[in-house]
Simulated scan of single mutants.
Amino acid sequence: MKSKCSILIHIVLLQCLVVLVASQGFDFFYFVQQWPGSYCDTEQSCCYPTTGKPAADFGIHGLWPNYNDGSYPSNCDPNSPFSPSEISDLQSSMQRSWPTLACPSSDGQQFWSHEWEKHGTCSESVLDQHAYFESALGLKQKVNLLQALTSSGITPGGSYSLTSIKDAITDAVGYTPWIECNKDSSGNSQLYQIYLCVDTSGSDLIKCPVFPHGACSSEIEFPSF
């Protein structure tokens, strides 16, 4: 009996260790910002948040733990649900910098809940819920993508080479971004999301160990919003 109990204890401890390692181990973050004009002018369209139309600026999509091989952890801790009370002091900043554009219109809670439960829980060993959202907001302040582009003559409403967009951001932040495109309702390729890489503390930009898959056209639109 003692032998069986000992084996069971070891199995349980091993399972706990596997879960712990899976939830704590990651190599870097993708910090992803999206252009609202490109979210809204697709066939699917968009809905403005209940707080009103967001500013014509890049908004946060997420801060996503990743591995150097290109894979990523997700939904690491089902026992750590999103709690609005944990970030009540950040809510006005999040409504401004991390707005939802999904339909139907909402106040953003569902969007933030998804980001925390899918991605944020996988960084809990480093960032608790408040620190996770606060870190993303801090990165948004540090990385002004719209200013980087407009300072190089790249303004909403025009069409630009993918290279010129990458170069403008690289010159401004010191690191090469990855650009994700989508298509407008007419099927034209356009600037949708910009990825930069961040160290595991969630505070400092780093050179990306790996980029996601996919490619944009050599010339892409930067739609107005």
Score class of each variant (00 low, 15 high):
residue 146 L to P: 00
residue 107 D to A: 04
residue 43 E to P: 03
residue 169 I to D: 01
residue 155 T to G: 02
residue 33 Q to R: 00
residue 197 C to M: 13
residue 64 W to D: 06
residue 85 S to R: 08
residue 68 N to C: 11
residue 7 I to P: 01
residue 89 D to E: 13
residue 58 F to Q: 10
residue 6 S to W: 09
residue 59 G to Q: 09
residue 74 S to F: 13
residue 56 A to F: 05
residue 148 A to L: 13
residue 170 T to H: 02
residue 34 Q to W: 04
residue 119 H to T: 09
residue 194 I to L: 15
residue 153 G to P: 12
residue 132 Y to F: 14
residue 77 D to N: 13
residue 31 F to M: 11
residue 69 D to P: 06
residue 77 D to C: 12
residue 82 F to A: 07
residue 207 K to N: 14
residue 222 F to D: 14
residue 165 I to Q: 04
residue 182 N to F: 07
residue 104 P to R: 00
residue 10 H to M: 15
residue 120 G to Y: 12
residue 98 W to I: 10
residue 65 P to V: 13
residue 110 Q to I: 10
residue 210 V to H: 06
residue 65 P to A: 12
residue 8 L to E: 03
residue 82 F to W: 09
residue 32 V to C: 09
residue 123 S to Y: 05
residue 210 V to L: 14
residue 26 F to Q: 01
residue 127 L to I: 10
residue 47 C to W: 06
residue 187 G to I: 05
residue 71 S to A: 11
residue 112 W to I: 10
residue 139 L to I: 11
residue 65 P to G: 09
residue 119 H to Y: 11
residue 128 D to P: 08
residue 17 L to C: 12
residue 176 T to D: 14
residue 81 P to V: 10
residue 222 F to E: 15
residue 44 Q to R: 01
residue 159 S to Y: 02
residue 5 C to R: 03
residue 168 A to Q: 05
residue 148 A to R: 05
residue 143 V to D: 01
residue 140 K to V: 09
residue 113 S to D: 04
residue 109 Q to R: 06
residue 90 L to D: 03
residue 33 Q to F: 02
residue 138 G to W: 05
residue 212 P to Y: 10
residue 98 W to A: 07
residue 219 E to C: 00
residue 59 G to M: 13
residue 12 V to L: 15
residue 117 E to I: 14
residue 220 I to R: 00
residue 85 S to F: 03
residue 105 S to C: 10
residue 26 F to W: 03
residue 6 S to M: 15
residue 154 I to E: 09
residue 107 D to T: 00
residue 134 E to F: 07
residue 144 N to K: 08
residue 154 I to W: 02
residue 208 C to G: 06
residue 14 L to H: 00
residue 147 Q to T: 12
residue 108 G to Q: 11
residue 146 L to F: 09
residue 14 L to R: 00
residue 211 F to L: 15
residue 103 C to Q: 02
residue 10 H to V: 14
residue 196 L to D: 06
residue 129 Q to I: 08
residue 149 L to A: 06
residue 67 Y to F: 14
residue 75 N to M: 11
residue 107 D to Q: 03
residue 48 Y to L: 10
residue 13 L to C: 13
residue 144 N to F: 10
residue 89 D to W: 00
residue 4 K to L: 14
residue 169 I to E: 01
residue 111 F to L: 15
residue 94 M to H: 03
residue 55 A to G: 01
residue 207 K to R: 03
residue 162 L to I: 11
residue 132 Y to S: 06
residue 4 K to W: 02
residue 132 Y to L: 13
residue 15 Q to E: 10
residue 223 P to Y: 04
residue 102 A to T: 07
residue 200 T to S: 15
residue 29 F to E: 13
residue 207 K to E: 15
residue 26 F to S: 03
residue 218 S to W: 03
residue 109 Q to N: 07
residue 42 T to L: 15
residue 101 L to Y: 05
residue 225 F to E: 13
residue 2 K to T: 01
residue 143 V to H: 01
residue 24 Q to G: 05
residue 124 E to F: 02
residue 73 P to Y: 06
residue 19 V to S: 08
residue 69 D to Q: 06
residue 170 T to V: 12
residue 197 C to L: 15
residue 144 N to E: 12
residue 194 I to V: 15
residue 199 D to Q: 02
residue 215 A to F: 11
residue 142 K to M: 13
residue 64 W to I: 08
residue 125 S to H: 09
